[in-house]
Simulated scan of single mutants.
Amino acid sequence: MRAPFIKMHGLGNDFVILDQRSGPPVPLNGGMVQALCHRTTGIGCDQLIVLEPSSAADLRMRIFNADGDEARACGNAARAVCLLQGCDVSIETAGGLIHARALDDAAAEVDMGRPRFAWDDIPLGYAMDTQPMPITWHDLPGPFAVNVGNPHAVFFVDPPTLDRLGELAPAVQADPVFHEGVNVSFAHVAGPATLNLRVWERGAGATLACGTAACAAAVLALRHKRLVSSPVTVQQPGGDLRIAWTGDTVLMTGAARETFRGTFDTRDFA
């Protein structure tokens, strides 16, 4: 069985998209996801995205990280799917219903919903303050935790520490207090409405951009007066996102691109 796919990326955060709204579905499992995502022997991507029919929205989007585990939300992928559709679209995800609006053929705005700050919304392993958390790792300050479809721990750091993400983030991510895993971000306030951000994604490691992490960092910086106004420009290695939040839902605006299309034999990745 040959299955068609579409390769897309949002600011370098790349996806293999399988549209399974019609035709025979690809028999996915964790091993196949890992094989397809592998950058040497597979197609290569940070996340595998599966589009399915939905009774609650225009479509359902499932997100699988490169390690085979399923994620709940992906802002960059939501923009890509919106541009793939070429119109405004409602998207059912495991993290909730989101809405995306195509601004042109290269950019989209996504309503990511309301951020959640309670310890059991992140979720954490036991009750504690999340603003900031009263624990830390290495020489880092205490992180701020928030759920924006996915769980995030955001550390506000100085510029040199941004470059230590790969050294420090894995120990944070592996801590059992984050019993469902967590996305770890290092953020630096670079101006009145600008953040520099580096992200270690759950199940993917360091990525060039992460949409939900950009939302999380911007919301936390605004909530705690580290930034003075919304919208916020979040600078990541892959490019910039515009995040707007005034206490209600979070709006994320940015680019996405199609890279190429192809097919693969499912027997090669079973």
Rank of each mutant, 00 (worst) to 15 (best):
A218Q: 12
E52Q: 15
A57D: 05
L241S: 01
D46M: 06
A214Y: 09
A118N: 10
G142C: 15
N183H: 06
Q34G: 06
V16M: 07
T253N: 01
A255G: 07
A218V: 07
P231F: 06
M128K: 03
A218C: 07
D14W: 04
A187R: 03
G44A: 09
R79T: 09
M61K: 04
D268C: 05
H152M: 01
E258S: 10
F5N: 07
P237S: 10
P53R: 06
E258P: 01
N76C: 12
I49K: 06
N150V: 00
G149C: 09
P4H: 03
P132K: 13
D111K: 04
S90V: 08
P132D: 11
V189R: 12
A78G: 02
G113H: 01
K225H: 15
S54Y: 03
L84W: 15
T93H: 09
A213M: 03
E109V: 14
P141A: 06
G181V: 06
E52F: 00
L197D: 03
P27R: 05
F260P: 01
P115A: 08
D67T: 07
P151T: 00
I91Q: 08
A187P: 03
P25L: 07
G23S: 08
L11I: 12
R116D: 00
C45Q: 03
A270M: 11
A108P: 14
D163K: 13
F15I: 02
V177Y: 01
F155N: 06
L168A: 03
T207S: 06
G149Y: 04
T266R: 01
D163C: 11
R21H: 07
V110D: 14
H9V: 08
D69K: 13
L59I: 15
F269Y: 15
L195R: 06
F156N: 07
V157L: 10
M128V: 10
Q85C: 15
F264L: 12
I63T: 07
F269A: 02
T249R: 08
Q20I: 03
P27T: 05
I43M: 13
T136W: 01
A107F: 07
L124H: 06
A80M: 08
E167H: 13
D19G: 10
R62Q: 12
G12Q: 11
F144A: 05
G166E: 11
P170H: 12
P123I: 00
A66Q: 04
A244Q: 12
V199C: 00
F15Q: 01
A206Y: 06
A209G: 14
L36R: 08
P53C: 12
L103G: 11
W245Y: 09
P159V: 12
V89K: 11
Q235I: 15
C87F: 10
M61I: 04
T249S: 15
